[in-house]
Design a protein around this nucleic acid. Structure first.
Length: 257
DNA sequence: AGAACCGCCTGCTTGC
DNA sequence: TGCAAGCAGGCGGTTC
């Protein structure tokens, strides 16, 4: 499932591939995505990531916003033949970008380009004071808070588990009980783990692939997620799996306090 | 107001 | 072996 590092990987590849290119045609294959307007003839000025959203900034003042949700992928293909689960296509002179999404949760829409920077992205700009003021006191589990896109952009289930594991903080802790020192630890590990994820071009634990169909390598770096019953690589305890808000959480009860 | 829960989807895994 | 039930989860919307 694409989280910040996966979306960043795609954004960078798209920026290299289609920045400055004109859209020849586009085609919607799935009625759910019918809200797309006509983008024919528009040129891509720049590709940016906003949280987990990919924004293709166009030369007409609008942006195409792509959110991959759970199983969405973007695939570069020279051929314009629709791949399995292809939902949407934009065609350039050199080839096509397909939105491929088996479960059809992904969204594509056009909106007027917004210039203001988001303030809750740990990589592109994070307003720590604003977070501590507005979010840190909430009465939800710290893991649920890390995954709330309004609180912090880009962190999904895998990276939330990894961050709390490395920071030694139990996912069951109520957010409001964390000290400033503990929050700083969370931010610090979060940045490190997300940057590492970007370096490794994403976590291909299930079906994540980059723009060219290649796997990432971050799955080899995971120390908690998916390791229930295995030994904790930090303290030697046993990784446990529990449910929080309907989602699996992997953590080490021994070293995460 | 804010926390908890629901529904959207379909392919894969599990159990009988 | 085959089929049904269960599971996966981001996030907007609804309910409590």
């Amino acid at each position: 499932m694409p989280e910040l590092p996966e979306v960043e990987t795609l954004s960078r590849q798209l920026q290299n591939k289609i920045c400055g290119c004109a859209i020849l045609t586009s085609k919607v294959y799935d009625d759910k995505l019918n809200g797309m307007g006509n983008v024919q003839g528009r040129r891509i000025l720049v590709v940016e990531r906003r949280g987990k959203t990919i924004a293709l900034r166009l030369n007409d003042g609008n942006s195409i916003l792509i959110h991959l949700r759970m199983t969405g992928r973007l695939l570069w293909q020279e051929s314009s033949i629709r791949p399995k689960h292809g939902r949407w296509r934009i065609t350039f002179k050199e080839g096509n970008i397909f939105l491929v999404d088996p479960r059809r949760f992904a969204t594509v829409k056009i909106e007027k380009t917004r210039n203001e920077k988001i303030e809750n992205d740990l990589i592109t700009g994070f307003n720590k004071n604003s977070f501590l003021e507005k979010q840190a006191g909430r009465k939800v589990n710290v893991k649920v808070l890390l995954m709330d896109p309004k609180a912090i952009a880009g962190i999904g289930n895998i990276y939330a588990c990894e961050i709390l594991h490395r920071a030694g903080i139990s996912p069951l802790r109520q957010a409001s009980t964390l000290s400033l020192k503990e929050w700083n630890k969370v931010f610090d590990y979060a940045k490190r783990i997300l940057k590492k994820g970007i370096e490794k071009r994403g976590t291909s634990i299930s079906d994540w692939r980059d723009l060219y169909g290649c796997k990432g390598e971050n799955q080899n770096e995971l120390k908690a997620y998916g390791r229930a019953g295995n030994c904790c690589l930090i303290c030697g305890g046993t990784i446990r799996r529990i449910k929080q808000g309907g989602r699996s959480t992997f953590y080490c009860p021994h070293c995460q306090k």
